[in-house]
Nucleic acid binder design. Structure first.
Lengths: 251, 251
DNA sequence: GTACTAAATTGAGCCGGCTCATTTTAGTGC
DNA sequence: GCACTAAAATGAGCCGGCTCAATTTAGTAC
């Protein structure tokens, strides 16, 4: 990968027009884990309950502490969930790709949003309110069971993260996150996997519970070892296997 | 609190007979959060799906890694969930009181148990298998929604714990756990709140992600400041308000 | 009361990673 | 290509808490 003039390898997302066309909406709704198994007709009806919004990069979808009144689905782009701590630090809870949902509703046990949701890149999100969602629930009972499953999976992930924070050194944590990001947002190229979403050192630090200086140092090491390439706000994994072998398998 | 001869202040639980009498079972089942709102008749029917087991102190209910086939409810005693890490450390995920459930089922998204469940004291637990539970689900649709709510609440707790591990010093973490234990298992006495469940330094350390030596040192400090009293496997909080004010509010 | 022992305590060296400060540079606009 | 600047990198001092080792003692059995 050679840059004659330095430009980010990330795809530009300032595509003209609205990204929330019906086709794309329906496609992404069908990918929402708790709507799986539903027929096209059912999805069409559900789609009617959702409203679309176009969010500029860096803009919030909702703020931490606000009353939880809506569920959201990423249709295009990426959304980052940040918990702002009382100590003035940020914890990056998750970075969501199209088809993933976020937000909260009273019926699901949420009172206030525990985090602020930001568009990591220009994004299109769909939202549904409490009354509409309960209608969807009643009309499609399988949705409730699927929701339990997904919430349980998220709970397991959160618990695994507790494990990581308790016992894993920072290198290992960073490796784990890079590999996860490669799987979730990675674009295969002949020279590796480009994580096709803006992802800065601060994001990495906030997601692994370390400082951005430490994240930077470790990324420097990985780069010097030929395991990754990176620049301002982007990362490409040159050798995922070796990265995993060297920093995860060692224990 | 004066001990003429050193004996633990904890109640002895080697009560003769079986603790899983129908009255107690029904009472604790009605306290399970996802069975709330059900009528006595419904609870009677649900009770028929559960089997009882008597577990000796220190014995496991199930092992980490086993196939998840049952949900359990604590009727009497206390159950501790320990995740054994590959690094040889233990993470105390939760300490459950009567009325709380644990375990897992495929329908809820579980494949294997992520932790080993141990009886922290002689306990009586009820269990239900996959087929029975799905029947309960179908007969009582509100159970599914309640389950989402509870799982969501557990997810929030887990995420709060990530926040704590990321930014809180150990004193603050230990304080938080002591206060939580006081609320959950505390017995009010004129000289404070006795945590009426065995709770060692190792338990405290495993629950706060620190070493037992560090837990011991901090408890020594709290003791010297008159905030707690403790002995082998027991803790009493002498001044919860001051403990909170001094180690949590300071930020 | 004595004997016992595992839980709790204590001492001390070590280090991973933090904070603070400064410098370098990737990537954009023109 | 030049100018700019915020993201990334680098240096260095500091310390919270870990690990290892040894000692003390809470609570039980008899």
């Amino acid at each position: 990968m050679k840059y004659s003039r330095r430009t980010t390898p990330l795809k530009q997302t300032e595509i003209q027009g609205h990204h929330c066309s019906v086709d794309v909406r329906l496609e992404k709704l069908s990918k929402v884990a708790f709507f799986r198994e539903l027929q096209q007709e059912q999805l069409d009806k559900i789609n009617e309950h959702f409203r679309a919004a176009h969010i500029q990069k860096g803009e919030p979808v909702y703020h931490q502490g606000e009353e939880a009144k809506q569920l959201f689905v990423v249709v295009h782009g990426a959304v980052k969930l940040i918990h702002h701590t009382t100590e003035g630090k940020d914890i990056l809870m998750d970075l969501l790709k199209p088809g993933e949902y976020f937000g909260g509703l009273p019926v699901l046990g949420d009172e206030n949003y525990a985090e602020t949701a930001y568009a990591q890149m220009t994004s299109c999100v769909l939202s549904i309110g409490a009354v509409d969602f309960e209608q969807v629930l009643h009309a499609n009972p399988s949705v409730a069971v699927n929701l339990i499953e997904i919430t349980t999976r998220r709970l397991k992930q959160a618990r695994h993260r507790i494990h990581q924070f308790t016992t894993w050194p920072v290198e290992k944590r960073i490796t784990s996150v890079l590999l996860m990001m490669g799987e979730k947002f990675g674009e295969d190229r002949k020279d590796g996997i480009l994580i096709q979403v803006p992802f800065s050192r601060k994001d990495l630090a906030d997601m692994t519970g370390t400082s951005s200086e430490t994240a930077s140092r470790i990324m420097r090491t990985f780069q010097d070892e030929g395991l990754i390439r990176s620049g301002r706000g982007w990362v490409a994994i040159s050798d995922a296997e070796k990265l995993k072998q060297r920093y995860i398998s060692d224990g």
